[in-house]
Amino acid sequence: MKPLILQGHERSITQIKYNREGDILISCAKDADANVWYSVNGERLGTLSGSKGTIWTIDIDWMTTRILTGHADGKLKMWDITNGTTLSDIPTFSNSAVRTCGFSYSANLAAYSNDDTMGMKCCLSVLDVRNADSTTSAEPVVKMQVTEQSGKITSLLWGNLDQYIITGHVRGDICTWDLRMGRELENISAHAKEPINDMQFSKDATMFITASKDNTAKLFTTHDRQLLKTYTTERPVNSAALSPILPHVVLGGGQEAREVTTTSTKVGKFDARLYHLIFEEEFARIKGHFGPINSLAFHPDGRSYASGGEDGFVRLHNFDQAYFDYTFDV
């Protein structure tokens, strides 16, 4: 397969996501502009310009009308995808970076979390974004403070029916937050004290996969957070995604950024690795990046996937027939 290389960023990619239908790919990086791409041919629809500094997180709503970005300077911005204008500069009442954000399923609500730096406490906030415009100065609907033991939130998912939120933390905990009661429901230790870098749902959102610095990715059920499977590698996992059509998991990672310059690309540490969902065994690798992979996303049709790396490139891979013909020998 010949991947499409998308060069829209000057610095390392922080997150990439497809929209629900898979025709749009959004990417954000440690530079100021988020990019919007057509996934079919890698054409850039536009950039979301007008902010400064790193964008840590990006999300797109179910109807593909609005994009939410969380910035390192403590800003949360909502954009119109049709023309790239800012719909709303949402005040976060915080100077610390917005680390995670996400629209709820209905996109009536949005959640975000900020870092526990600069004297701020890490909080999970939920906003009503139905009428958000540039004049909004509304307080969050719900604001919940994260416990000291769990540390800051590093990834965030909305649970079923917009009733609860699941968060992954820097000390390896997975917390569940009830929005009606406005408090933490459950706190489980999933990855022994190591940061959870990423969490992604399966296609029907009955399961989610976590990627952690402790060299593993783990699969949990959404409704009761039971550990189902563990995928072990020899290096930190930065991102993990579940195939929507086959029992496959793709893991991306690599070592610490400071060790990258001393590592040859031939060692294979920057490969995307495909694991079998059920047997937890690696069955294939895909080369490409010359830095660790920071974010991965499967196309909703399962026939391609995208990866964003520390090298600043997004690579769009359309799987060969060989991938679909492959059967896993037990």
Binding site: M1, K2, I5, N41, I286, K287, R315
Partner: peptide
């Protein structure tokens, strides 16, 4: 912005 990369084999 968009380049077609080199052939990659799985």
């Amino acid at each position: 912005t968009t380049i077609i990369g080199e052939e990659v084999h799985i």
